[in-house]
Amino acid sequence: MKKLKLHFDNELQGSFKLKKLNILLVFQVNCPGCFSYALPFFNKLYHEFHTENLSFIALSTAFEDFDKNTLENTQNLIKRGTFIGETKKFMKEQGYNKLPYNLNFPIAMDKINDTNTVDLNDAVNAICAINPNYTIWPEFEKKALQHKVKNYLNSLDKIALTFTLNQLRGTPSFVLFNSDYEIINEWFGHVPYEEIQQKIIQFL
């Protein structure tokens, strides 16, 4: 079973404690959809399930706009409810200059490194291992994929470790995982509330 590689340096609000079942929201502060949909959605899940054996963590990340999707802007969001970039434009169009709801769950910042400070071999191996058939491929196919992934990583100036090593498709992303960090289910984009709700109930 695929395992979640969860990396963060800074817990900005609350504290994540690994439980039998855990749910992760990965968002960007410069992501209007994260604010119109994913963060209120995560609040709703938190209010329904935080008293159960389910742990919550929202991770602010960056796979683009590294000048906007920053630790500082995430801290300003949490402390002051302020927006940045496209999110600011979108929320202003909706009539909001500040965040109109509370963020009640633990929040941390994805570990973001310059590519020259990351062990690319470890990163390459982690990304390649996501392919369920990778271990049974012939050696020449493995090397071809390793080369392709290394070139991709070398093309980046910065790497958000959780986002990149798990090869998430974008933001918002939701990941449900167990106490061994095994991924039970993952979702990208707009998901019906009942779909994640029922998956949680199934595994609690």
Rank of each mutant, 00 (worst) to 15 (best):
N104Q: 08
N97A: 06
Y134G: 05
I107C: 10
P138W: 10
Q167S: 15
L120T: 06
K150N: 12
V118Q: 11
K3V: 12
S155H: 05
A129I: 02
G189E: 13
L45S: 08
T171I: 09
F63H: 13
F49W: 06
L45G: 05
I78G: 06
S36P: 00
K142T: 03
E139P: 01
L176S: 06
K68S: 11
S55C: 10
L204T: 15
L204W: 02
T135E: 12
A144R: 12
D119G: 10
F16E: 09
T171W: 00
L18P: 00
D122G: 14
T82F: 08
F66R: 00
K199S: 07
N116C: 09
N43W: 01
L156H: 10
W187A: 11
F140W: 12
D9Y: 01
K2H: 14
C31L: 03
F105D: 05
K111S: 13
E186G: 10
Q197D: 15
N131D: 06
K79Q: 15
L99N: 07
N22P: 01
F105A: 11
G170L: 03
A62G: 04
Y96V: 01
V149R: 12
V124L: 07
H147W: 04
F56Y: 06
G14F: 04
P32K: 15
Q197I: 02
E48V: 06
D157L: 05
Q198L: 13
P106D: 12
K2E: 08
S179E: 15
T117C: 05
T171V: 13
D65R: 02
N166V: 11
N131A: 14
V175Q: 08
Q197P: 00
K148I: 00
N30M: 10
E194A: 11
L77P: 04
F105I: 13
F42H: 04
M109S: 11
L145T: 03
G95Q: 06
L153Y: 00
F105E: 07
R80Y: 14
D110H: 06
Y152M: 11
N73M: 08
L71R: 09
V118F: 03
F42Y: 11
G33W: 00
N76A: 13
M109W: 01
E48M: 05
K19L: 04
M109F: 06
K20W: 00
I112L: 13
L145Y: 15
N22L: 08
Q28P: 15
K150H: 07
P40D: 05
F27C: 01
K68V: 02
F90Y: 14
S15T: 12
I184D: 01
K89P: 02
V124W: 00
K89L: 10
G14T: 07
T115R: 15
K150V: 02
E93V: 06
A126Q: 14
D157V: 04
K5N: 14
Y46T: 07
N97C: 09
D157N: 15
E64L: 05
F27G: 02
Q202S: 08
K148A: 07
F56S: 04
G85M: 03
N125M: 07
K17V: 07
E139N: 13
L45K: 00
I184A: 03
F49N: 04
F105K: 07
T87E: 12
L59Q: 00
E195I: 13
A129E: 03
T164I: 01
E86A: 14
L21A: 05
G95S: 05
H7E: 12
P40E: 03
P132G: 05
K20S: 12
